Amino acid sequence: MHQRLDWLTNHPQHSSMFAEWIHRQFAYEYVGQPLAEWQCEFAEGQANGNWQCLIALDQDRLLGGAALAKADLAQRPDLGPWLACVFVTPHARGQGLAERLIEGICARARENGVARIYLHTQDKRDYYAKRGWAVQERFQGWGKEQWLMAKNL
């Protein structure tokens, strides 16, 4: 498998599919937002910078992605930018792809002059902690306990 990373803006044909994967994977976050509406917001986010998405490809087959988001937690508009939308298809997992995507997002944030990046997670706290992210706080969201984490770049 020949994997490469590139920005979604260079492959807009994959935007709707990736947005659908995210909508399905994190369904609890999109309860009030229909898929088509999210797909439009995500596609527009590639152009306006709200959801800068780095994707992983094998030839032209989409394997996953991650986004640098301006805002990803409604109750914390004071924080940002965010690592968001991290997802790798099941058949491409276990090869360090998510880690490469996350590093790519952190590198973009650093290039943009960002000193600190945030994320929130429901069940991947240990994964991120092993990679240098620190818990800032616990909070209730979408009916479950969530973790707000940050990393200095």
Rank of each mutant, 00 (worst) to 15 (best):
A129F: 02
K124H: 06
E20K: 14
L97M: 05
L63S: 03
R110P: 03
F18G: 06
A66F: 01
A66I: 05
S15K: 06
E103F: 00
A107E: 11
G49P: 02
R110H: 11
G80F: 04
Q46S: 01
R125V: 05
M1S: 15
W21V: 05
W21E: 07
H11G: 07
R24L: 11
L54R: 06
A71D: 09
E41G: 03
Y30K: 11
A19R: 12
N50P: 00
M1Y: 13
F42T: 00
F18H: 07
H23F: 13
W142K: 13
F26K: 06
D123T: 12
G49M: 10
Q95F: 05
W51M: 02
Q46E: 13
A69Y: 02
G143L: 10
A43Y: 05
E145W: 02
E41L: 14
R138I: 05
M149Y: 06
R24A: 12
L35E: 13
S16M: 13
L5S: 05
A115S: 10
G32D: 15
Q122E: 14
V88S: 04
V86A: 08
V135R: 11
M149E: 08
P34V: 06
R93A: 06
A56E: 09
I105P: 00
C53E: 06
R138Y: 11
E41R: 14
G32P: 02
L57F: 09
V114D: 02
Q25W: 15
R108A: 01
K124I: 04
L101I: 01
A71N: 09
W38E: 06
L35S: 08
H120E: 04
A134T: 12
G104L: 01
L62M: 04
H14E: 07
G65W: 01
L57I: 08
A84F: 01
C85H: 06
N50Q: 14
L5D: 08
P90H: 15
F18N: 07
K124Q: 15
Y127I: 11
R61I: 07
Y127E: 07
S15G: 12
M17V: 13
V135C: 12
H14L: 08
E29Q: 15
P81W: 08
W133R: 10
W21K: 11
H14V: 03
T9W: 05
G132Y: 10
W142G: 02
Q75D: 08
G132T: 13
H2Q: 12
D123F: 04
H120N: 12
